[in-house]
């Protein structure tokens, strides 16, 4: 099974420079639908699904490998190397912002720029660090995932492609945009919300843009500020958009911030 098939890689656009989009927890490459077309003229657009999500090969899911963000970062590196990407632009949402940061540390030649939308290196509060969640709240989330399987499935039903227990669901699914395997999604949630990659931030050499939403319950403003503060070379933009997915709820604002960042990079280069 090739890497490209494994991660359902889609290649679009007509530019030389690669712009790689990575979706976060809860969705798939569909979440970039309002953003990537704007960049298709100028960049070679790479879209993909993490293993376990969207159109990826579910059989490739390996509990051990994907028990940490490094497993996902390895896949990202493999995809880029398969496509001979160097000095590209990485656009990552939520947990994938950190996956991109980890990949860029391991393979610095891949990306010159990281666009991190709603990044969080750690979701749980820790001493002076504000992650946005108490340990108890994350425990509640994980217990909810573990103990209330059917309730969770029920909550997830709209986004589940195939539910073997309830085959009638898939037939009449009205909510079918972001497909996900429930068991894998549970594990992905655990990996995401228990991750702590704060120490990695200082090792990132690429230029970075931190896009922070207003009123983001998943990645509060303090977290975005922390990321910006720890990254050696970063810009910080606080969006007016609320929630956790500005790429969907406020694509124009997101695109505008990205362009501003990328153009500034180009101006620097010209100077």
């Amino acid at each position: 099974m090739g890497v490209l098939r494994r991660n359902n890689v889609q290649i679009m656009g007509s530019g030389q420079k690669a712009m790689v989009f990575a979706h976060g927890f809860g969705c798939d490459q569909n979440m970039w639908r309002f953003v990537w077309p704007t960049f298709a003229d100028e960049y070679r657009i790479i879209l993909f699904d993490h293993v376990g999500c969207g159109g990826s090969d579910l059989k490739a899911y390996n509990v051990g490998k994907y028990a940490s963000l490094e497993g996902y970062a390895d896949d990202l590196i493999e995809i880029c190397r398969e496509l001979d990407i160097t000095h590209g632009i990485f656009v990552g949402h939520s947990v994938s912002a950190m996956i991109g940061a980890v990949a860029s540390i391991q393979a610095p030649e891949l990306f010159d720029d990281l666009v991190m939308i709603g990044p969080s290196p750690r979701y749980i509060d820790d001493e002076d660090y504000t992650g946005g969640f108490s340990e108890a709240q994350i425990e509640e989330l994980l217990d909810f995932l573990d103990d209330n399987h059917m309730g969770w499935s029920q909550a997830m039903a709209p986004v589940i492609m195939g539910n073997p227990d309830r085959p009638e669901l898939s037939a009449e699914l009205t909510n079918s945009f972001c497909m996900t395997d429930p068991e894998i999604a549970k594990r992905f949630a655990r990996v995401t919300f228990l991750s702590d990659n704060r120490a990695d931030l200082a090792l990132v050499t690429a230029r970075a843009l931190v896009l922070q939403c207003s009123e983001d319950v998943i990645a509060p403003q303090a977290v975005g500020a922390y990321v910006h503060q720890c990254l050696p070379n970063s810009a910080f933009v606080l969006l007016q958009a609320t929630g956790h997915c500005p790429n969907l709820s406020a694509p124009e604002e997101t695109i505008s911030a990205m362009k501003t960042f990328l153009e500034a990079r180009d101006r620097e280069r010209q100077i």
Binding site: M31, A155, P158, C178, D216, V217, G243, C245, L248, S249
Partner: peptide
């Protein structure tokens, strides 16, 4: 809390897309 997270990560994007 679980609802908040799932709403933000799953259902809000879903509504926006479809």
């Amino acid at each position: 809390i679980a609802g908040k997270i799932y709403y933000e990560t799953h259902f809000a994007p879903l509504m926006r897309m479809q």
